[in-house]
């Protein structure tokens, strides 16, 4: 099967990466996507997948993408929380795969929060 060969190649790449970076998971930037019924219905799965694809295609290291349940404001889903070590949590609301590209490029890569997608006090 051709796909097994592909998986073996990924394995080899990841093994060499693990050797270089070590297991420093705590120092990673963490992206959390809300994945309860409300998030899923609003489009959280394509948002999650867009993060995975952007991070891989731009070869960004030191980022973890995880999932959470309901982040508490269903009508603002899909919601995404970004935790950069040493910085305050940033909560983005009503995210789409298109907006993910900007968040990855501006916030994850360059450290510049995309303020127009950030939750504001009157959004609730």
């Amino acid at each position: 099967m051709k796909s097994i060969e592909e998986l073996k190649a990924i394995k080899a790449r990841m093994q060499s990466e693990i050797n270089i970076r070590g297991a420093n998971g705590d120092a990673d930037t963490r992206i959390v996507v809300g994945m309860a019924t409300c998030g899923i219905a609003a489009g959280a799965r394509p948002v999650l997948n867009a993060f995975l694809e952007e991070i891989q295609s731009k070869r960004i290291k030191g980022v973890r993408v995880t999932q959470a349940g309901c982040l508490g404001m269903c009508k603002l889903e899909p919601m995404v929380e970004v935790f950069v070590p040493g910085k305050e949590k940033v909560t983005y609301v009503k995210i789409t795969p298109e907006k993910v590209k900007k968040i990855v490029a501006d916030h994850i890569v360059n450290g510049k929060i995309v303020s127009e997608y950030v939750i504001t006090e009157n959004a609730q």
């Binding site: 592909e6 394995k11 990841m14 891989q56 993408v65």
Partner: peptide, 20 residues
């Protein structure tokens, strides 16, 4: 295939599984 040292939830592996 991955063995013990490469996690299944790495981004590249998940993208592979998804597309496969």
């Amino acid at each position: 295939v991955l063995g013990d040292d490469v996690p299944i939830d790495g981004i590249e592996v998940i993208n592979f599984i998804k597309n496969n």
